[in-house]
Every structure is written in structure tokens, then in C-alpha cells.
Design a protein around this nucleic acid. Structure first.
Lengths: 152, 152
DNA sequence: AGCTAGTTGATAATTATTATTAACTAGCTA
DNA sequence: TAGCTAGTTAATAATAATTATCAACTAGCT
């Protein structure tokens, strides 16, 4: 799945991408540049395969394993977030700001949403002696579009 | 992963399992019986492979595809819930009562927890025109056990 | 007891991801 | 600015998880 807008492809300057990579101490290579730019442009969550195919079109030499390696580096560096919600392949999100997800069970579309505050889990955490690092709401349902389709 | 207690193996009578299957209109077969009983006993989330191995020990004739087919039927019928949280294989949960999950990023242990009420998402749902069917909190962090290990 | 649609087991195929490794190169250093 | 080296890449193989196919079998109706 990939809901990006192609005409935005130049919205992120080469400089911005290079700066991001350097900021987290990753070497700047053309492959990383292309992959990070893809993720930034197609904010709507791309899979490793989406990224591979897209870059491969223009640059047939890129390797699948490079895409996976790179995505792993990016995740570890905090540049992107891996989303394992839903079936099938992981998606990679440039939106590292804490947010939640709505998955349409009909079409698979994944939508970000935000809440003013996180649910209070202090008592649960205390009770289970669990150290909470991250907390996300994962909502399943039917998106506006698929509701329309079902009506007709 | 499998955190069950073997001595509970008889806690669920044949009758209970048969009743559950009939209640949702599924034919009663020895395979379905064994798989559903396994899930009920090992409430602590079993993967398809866990279930396959466990049943295969006593009944070497059972097939992997039967396990997958059966789990799919069970999910569709609402007897079990598939959990795709975390990396690797899906887990199957007999606990169909609404609840949330805590995943230990060190050891992979998945713990259920409950909240008195669901977060209020009516305004988000309205804004995005999204029909919400299900809502789960997915928490990542470190379990009590792994915290102890890290200290020492 | 016989029939039939639903189920199973064996196997192959597919999809997603990780491992391996020799060749290559980004960016430091002289 | 050339040379060095550790980090990176591409190609490929391997693995893991899941789905597809289909002939043989069987649960449960009649």
C-alpha cells in the first residue's frame, strides 16, 4: 500500500535528507538518500517492497537487502518507525511524533491520528511492574471511503 | 512463546469445546477439538507453530495447513483473536474479552491487561468519518523479569 | 447405511525477512 | 588530493510464516 503524492517528490531538498542522515551519524550514500527521501515523500506508510520497487524503477541496481538493511539502520537511529500493525509486511513511517493508527479492515488503508494525551497507565504499570516505553492505540474499523462503497 | 500450564490440560471438558464449536456453526472434528482445547489451555498466546508442535507430538498425522485453516475459521467465527502485535508469527488468543497488550521488547513476552474504560475516540472518529469496530492499546516496554536481569 | 458438502493432509508455492560474503566506497587522514 | 579502512552494497542463498491446490476422507444430515 502506498498513498503518496508523486508531485511532492521534490519537496524534500537533498540537503534536508543529508542533514538528517548526518545528524544521527549515518554515512551518506545514494541508496540511503533515495530510501529516506522516498519515506519522507510517501508519508502514508510504505513497505520495504514499495520502497524497493519505486527506487528500482529509476535505479535497477538497488538490492532488496540494501532496502531492508537501510530500513533497519533508520529504525535504530530513530529516523523512521516500523509499524507491524495489520497483516502482511511491516510499514515504515517518517512520522516519529507519537501518534496512533486506524486500520481499515476493508481496504487496508492506515491512517494516523493524534490524541491530546496518552491514556493513564501508571497504575497498570505499577501493578505489573512493567516499564512502559511506548504506548499506541490501534483502531480497526471501516474508513469513510469503504463505508460509501458498502452503502451502494 | 507459550506460557501455559500442562497440568491444566483437562480443565476444559470435551463437552465445553464441542459446545463452543457447535454454537458458532462449525463442524466438530477431532482436529478442531484438539486445536481449540490447546488455545483454551494455553491462554498465554500460542502461535500456529506452537499449536502444531504440541498437537503433533501426540498425533503425528496432523497437518500444518489444518492448523492454519482451523485458526482462520476460529478467528472468523470469533472463537479466538489473532494478535499481530510484535515481530514474527501471529499469536492466537482465547481471551476474546476486550483487552490490551504489553509486549516486553527484551524477551517478547506478551501480557494482557484491562482498563476500566476505553479511551474516548468519538471526536476523532467523527472527524475522520471512520467507523470504529475495535480499539486496542499496544504497549512496549520491559517486563519485571527483564528489568531484574538488566540490573544484575 | 448412504450421500454430499465441508474438512483434512500432503505438498508446492508464495511472501517477508535475514544471513553471507566478496566487491565497493564514504569520508577520514597524511 | 591520493590512499586507507571500516562501513556499505549487491547478489545470492537460506529461513520463516503463510497461503494455495487438490485428491482422499468424514461429519452429520436424510
Amino acid at each position: 500500500m502506498c498513498f503518496g503524492v508523486t508531485t511532492m517528490a521534490l519537496a524534500h531538498s537533498e540537503n534536508e535528507v543529508v542533514t538528517m542522515l548526518k545528524a544521527v551519524g549515518l554515512r551518506v550514500t545514494p541508496q540511503r538518500d533515495a530510501i529516506l527521501r522516498h519515506i519522507l515523500v510517501y508519508r502514508g506508510h510504505s513497505s520495504a517492497d514499495d520502497i524497493y520497487r519505486s527506487i528500482h524503477e529509476r535505479w535497477p541496481n538497488i538490492s532488496v537487502s540494501t532496502v531492508y538493511n537501510t530500513l533497519k539502520s533508520f529504525s535504530e537511529a530513530g529516523l523512521v518507525k516500523e509499524i507491524t500493525f495489520g497483516d502482511g509486511a511491516s510499514l515504515f513511517d517518517a512520522n516519529t511524533y507519537p501518534h496512533h493508527h486506524m486500520l481499515c479492515v476493508q481496504c487496508g488503508q492506515l491512517t494516523d491520528f493524534y490524541l491530546p494525551e496518552m491514556p493513564d497507565l501508571t497504575s497498570v504499570a505499577k501493578e505489573l511492574c512493567f516499564q512502559i516505553d511506548e504506548c499506541q492505540l490501534e483502531v480497526r474499523g471501516v474508513c469513510a471511503n469503504c463505508q460509501d462503497i458498502m452503502k451502494s
